[in-house]
Structure formats: C-alpha cells, structure tokens
Design a binder for these strands. Structure first.
Lengths: 159, 159
DNA sequence: GCAGATCTACTCGGATAGGTGGTGTCCGAGTGCCTTGGG
DNA sequence: CCCAAGGCACTCGGACACCACCTATCCGAGTAGATCTGC
C-alpha cells in the first residue's frame, strides 16, 4: 500500500496555487522549479488534477494552472484520489466462495466481515482527508508564506 | 495505493486457523485447497505471518500452521501490516525545503501540515483495524461455520 | 513382545523468473502576445 | 497615432521506454512418525 510520490508533489503544488492572487497562473515548469521536481513528469501528473476538475489549465504565454474552484471547496481527498484513483486498497474477491471450503450461496447473504472491516477503515481514512480543505492548509501556514510564494513564483527564471 | 491480493488470503486463512481446536494445525497446501489459491505463493506469504509472530509453524508430518497467540490478541492490523509492511502510504520527502521556494530551516520547526494530515488519516485507518481482533471476526460468523470448517480442513484430500 | 535405530514421507523456508503499474522522458497541437505594416 | 494581420514563443496534452515491486514457481533443509531389526 503505497501512494505515488507525485501525491506529495500535487498536494504542495495545489497549496501553492491556492496562494496565488485570483486569476494568476503558474506553469508546470515554474512549479517544478519551485520544488526542484522533474518538470515533464510533474506536468503529466498535473493533468490528472485538470481531468478531475480541481485545476484549470490555460495554454499559451502567461498560461499555466490555477485552481478551478475556491480553495475552501477543494479537499485533500479530492487531490489524493485524483492522483491515485478512488478504488479501495483492499479488494474483496470473495474467496470464501471458492475451493473446498466454498460457502453455499445462502450463507453469503451478508457481506464478508473482513471486507466490511477493511472498507470501514478505508472510509475512516477518507473522512479524515475530506475534513481538510486547501483553505485549511493555507490558514495554517506562517503569515509570511503567501507573499513569499507569490514573489518567488512571479520572479523571472533568469533573474 | 493498493494492498497485495494476498492480504485477503491471509486474513481468511488466519480466521480459518482461529476456528481450529487448540493445538491443531493446517498445512499451506490444505489452506490453499480450502480457498482454491496457488499453494506455493500462499506458503510464501504465510511465512510473513510467522516472522511477525502471528502464526507458528511446525514441520514434518501432521505439521502446519497455527495461531501463535489467542485469537483475541491478534488484530486485523497486525495481519495487514505483516503482509504489506507498516510504513505509511504517504511518505513526506520535505519537498518544501527544496528548489527555488525552499523554506529556510527556521520556518520548518513544525512538521509539514500536509504530511501531518496524511499521517492523521493513516492513523485513523490503523485505529479501525486495531479495534477488531480475529476473535471478533469469528464471533460474527454463522454458528455452523466452525464445525463445518474443521470438518473440511480435517478431511483427507483423497476422500 | 519390546526397544532402538533407521528410513521415509511430509512439512516449512528461501532463492529464482515473469508481468503489471508507477516513474521518467519526449515531441506535437493549440493559444495568447508581440511585432510589423498600412491607414 | 491607431488598428489589424502575421509570426512566434510559450503552454498544455498525449504517446513512448525504463525500473521496481508484486505475483508465481521451484527445489532444498529439517522433522515427526512409521518401519524394521535385534534382543
């Protein structure tokens, strides 16, 4: 059970985009430079967030990515599931109905207890992440961070 | 974020072992037959539970696996972490301290908020699984299951 | 008939190949800005 | 000086290799029980 490394990248990138002034964008190259990440791969992963409706992308000069919605309406769960998919890590294949010990159909009216517990755990995980929005994360950052981030993201690469 | 398929196998196998009379064992081949699973691979995974101290193994004729402890003292979390490892699926690599936007050391006295939230979610997942023991699972099975399981596991393969 | 050594069959345990998905990279399509020419 | 058309540079978007981990399998080490022999 391992989340892609890009999960961390996108959580941080989304937070950074949440710090920008409304309407401003940041290109994949600029974000990659900001965090010292492989630009092409980061760009590929940012597309996942666009497809999920979390970011919106603009092409051309001065283009880039920005949040598609207010930061308060974007949960950490949305970002994580956009990167990794929304499937539960535990997949019940109903092995209780296979082999020499296969249960008869009438004994399987209720879902497998083990699968139910694993699903419950996954739901607890999701609930924790859905309870935090990007706005909550931004609110917890030091007061100096937004200005600093805008200044660095806005700076020209050459200078 | 995906758990190995063998997670389901071992949760069910451990439950089955919990149904046996004290002292009885079930070999990997017998368990594989019981659930129609690839025997060699199942045997390999059962070793993980032995190394974790959840099962104890006996070699030779009439040997096999049994629970190393009472079912009430074995949690689902132990089994899952024995199979998949205990590492958190989200690994914070402190990218906030890299690249053009690297934060100075004095701004990193507190742990990364995103990593903290992800850790909190993982802990919620763990708490759900640590709250259920094999005895709880067994208690939720139909009353006819234990006898039936013992009869099938004890039956000779040829008959 | 009984005790001991031997022998066998069965068990686990670790070392060895293959397939799938994340990781990393590249190039092409599209768009907004800048330049340039004309009115 | 103002406007419009063309060119251009920059952006995203999708298609193509590489590597690690899970999946699957095999064979060897060790042991408990059954067997056979000697007393």
């Amino acid at each position: 059970m391992k989340l892609p490394v890009s999960t961390e990248w996108l959580l941080h990138c989304a937070t950074t985009l949440a710090l920008l002034d409304a309407g401003d964008t940041a290109s994949a190259a600029r974000l990659a430079q900001y965090y010292d990440l492989p630009a092409p791969y980061l760009a590929k992963q940012l597309q996942s967030l666009v497809r999920a409706g979390i970011l919106s992308a603009t092409t051309g000069p001065q283009g880039g990515f920005r949040l598609a919605r207010p930061a308060g309406e974007i949960t950490l769960l949305e970002i994580v599931e956009a990167v990794d998919g929304a499937r539960s890590p535990y997949e019940c294949r109903e092995i209780r109905r296979q082999g020499a010990g296969a249960l008869p159909a009438e004994s399987c009216t209720e879902p497998c207890l083990l699968a139910a517990k694993m699903a419950e755990a996954h739901e607890a995980w999701r609930q924790t992440l859905v309870a935090s929005s990007l706005a909550d994360i931004v609110a917890g950052l030091p007061a100096s961070t937004p200005d600093r981030t805008r200044r660095i993201i806005g700076a020209t690469p050459g200078g």
